[in-house]
Amino acid sequence: MTKQIFAAGTIPWRRVLTPAGAEELMVLLIHRRKQRDISFPKGKLDAGESMPEAAVRETREETGLRVRLGATLGTIHYELPGGNAKIVQYWAAEVTAKMALASTFKPNSEVQALEWVPVAAARDLLSYEADRELFDVFLKLAAPGLLDTFSVTLLRHAKATARGEEAAEDYLRPLTPSGERQAHTLAPILRSFAPRRIYSSTATRCLATVAPLAERIGKDVRERDCLSQDFWDRGDLTATRRLIGKIVKRGRSTVVCSHLPVLPDLARELMLASGSLPGEYVEDAARLPPAGFSVFHFSRTRPGAGILGVETYPLKH
Rank of each mutant, 00 (worst) to 15 (best):
Y171A: 13
A121M: 15
A22K: 09
W116L: 04
L207G: 00
R191H: 01
T75Y: 00
T75M: 03
E24F: 06
D136F: 09
W116R: 02
L69I: 08
A121L: 15
G48F: 11
F298C: 11
A187V: 15
A130L: 01
D230P: 07
E215D: 14
P12E: 07
L243V: 13
A158Y: 03
R222P: 06
S228D: 14
V117L: 06
T209I: 13
D265S: 13
L141W: 08
G74Q: 08
A211P: 06
V295A: 02
Q229R: 09
D284E: 14
V137Q: 10
A286P: 11
R14I: 00
D136G: 02
S103N: 15
T161K: 15
L126K: 04
A122H: 07
E269Q: 15
Q229I: 04
G279R: 12
R216G: 04
V95F: 00
G275E: 05
E61I: 08
A92N: 00
S258E: 06
E165D: 01
L69V: 03
V255M: 03
S253D: 05
G21R: 07
G306H: 05
A239I: 11
L172R: 11
R287E: 11
G43W: 07
E223W: 13
V117P: 01
C206E: 00
R250S: 13
L315N: 10
Y199Q: 05
P52E: 03
L288D: 07
A47L: 15
D46G: 12
R123H: 14
V111I: 12
G306D: 03
S299E: 12
K159W: 06
G279A: 13
E62H: 10
K106I: 09
A100T: 10
S274M: 08
R268G: 01
N108G: 05
A47I: 02
P177M: 13
I5G: 06
R66I: 14
L101R: 13
G235P: 09
H297M: 10
T63Q: 02
P303V: 04
F293W: 08
L155H: 03
A239E: 15
T149Q: 05
I189K: 10
A194Q: 11
L139S: 00
T63P: 06
F40E: 10
V221N: 11
V262T: 12
A97M: 01
S201R: 05
S294G: 07
T301E: 12
